[in-house]
Simulated scan of single mutants.
Amino acid sequence: MKYIFSLLLLTIFSHHLYAQNALNYDKEKLLEYYQSQRYAEAAQYLQTVYPEDTQDTKALNQIAYCFMMAGKLPEAEKNYLKLVAQTPTSVPVLFNLANINLRRGNGIKAKSYFESIIQLDSTNFNAYKKLADLYENATDSQKVIYLIKANQINPIEADVALDLAKAYQKLKKYEPAYDILLKAIAADTGHLILQQAKLPIAIQLKKYREVIETGEKLLTAGFDANVAKDVGMAYFYLKNYEKAISYFKMLEMITAQTESTLYYTSLSYRNLNNYLLAAEYAKKTIEEGISPNTSSYYLLLGGIYEINNKSTSAVTAYKRGLTFKENGNIYYRLGILYDFKLNQKKSALTYYNRYLKSKPDTAADKEQISYARARLAELKK
């Protein structure tokens, strides 16, 4: 009985010592670790202060936080899980667990924590924002729902307003997209990204003068190709074709033209009765719309037809590829086809000649060049 009593006193004394240690740890030392951002050392120090199996929420919070800031995410998660077991409704702890899982690439677990947060707090803006960020597709219905909720809670937060407006724009819901951006811009009139995002939406709503006014102000702050395009489009729709052309030409000067801007340049010249330049820009539009790799795609297609013994289809594909760009390899394949599959030696001779005149790479295509020359010599006999 005396032994048991002594053991009990020792246990109580040990707990008292732990409590004293916890209360009397070196706060200046810990502060130094924090200020110098030596969070891993801070966590290790705290682990020497508190017992390994401590259930002290303050201690667990400190240790978990330090591990998280040090990038030691498994250790941080382990300590936050101990906390969430004690206080399952703690929003800050759930948020930290969600963010840890995001950093570790586990979106599914992160999503479950964020969902728990909005069940506990239906007005938690950050949780809705984070949930929306988990969806890559801008128009995913669930992403849009989360963005709407976040925007309702905080309509002036720029990132959410921007994402929601862009989603609405893609869904062709221009009025709500415009209104959302207008509210966010009113709260931050110097936010250039929000103002820029509004321009293409305003064009869809035929607010052309507003686009010109805003766009030209933005361009004084620095040239942006998208802004110049939008301003040019606004002038085009107002039938001020000279001004439209001037903005579209700015894009050409920095090789930022697109199929669309070239098309509207052609239309502008046509409307000004300048048919020579209208035709020139119509041709440029066609060239811009064609990928420089198109002939290679037809080379691939022709080769597939060859493998399947569809020689006629292969010839058609190869010749179609040549309408986009001269391609030496296509000439070579046509030579082979006409030579051996279609038995048209005259055509084979023509395409072997064209292949050699296309100046193939003498190092990379050494074997093909030698073969084409040999076949030419043979066919000319």
Rank of each mutant, 00 (worst) to 15 (best):
H15Q: 13
H16N: 07
L17M: 07
Q20W: 05
Y33Q: 02
Y34P: 00
S36L: 11
Q37K: 11
A43C: 11
D56F: 07
F67W: 09
E75M: 15
E77N: 06
K78F: 09
V84L: 03
Q86C: 01
S90I: 06
S90D: 14
N99D: 13
I108Q: 06
D121N: 14
N124P: 06
K129E: 07
Q142A: 12
I153W: 12
L162C: 01
D163T: 07
K172I: 04
Y174W: 10
D179Q: 13
A186D: 14
H191F: 12
L194H: 08
L194P: 06
L199M: 01
T214D: 15
E216R: 03
L218E: 01
T220I: 06
G222S: 08
V231C: 01
G232Q: 03
A256L: 05
T258G: 01
S266D: 03
L267R: 15
R270P: 00
A278P: 02
K284L: 12
T294C: 02
Y297M: 06
L300S: 13
G303D: 03
I307M: 05
A317Y: 02
T323S: 10
F324Q: 05
L334R: 04
L342R: 10
Q344W: 03
R354P: 02
L356I: 06
K357H: 08
K359L: 13
D361W: 06
A363E: 12
K366C: 15
I369H: 08
R373L: 13
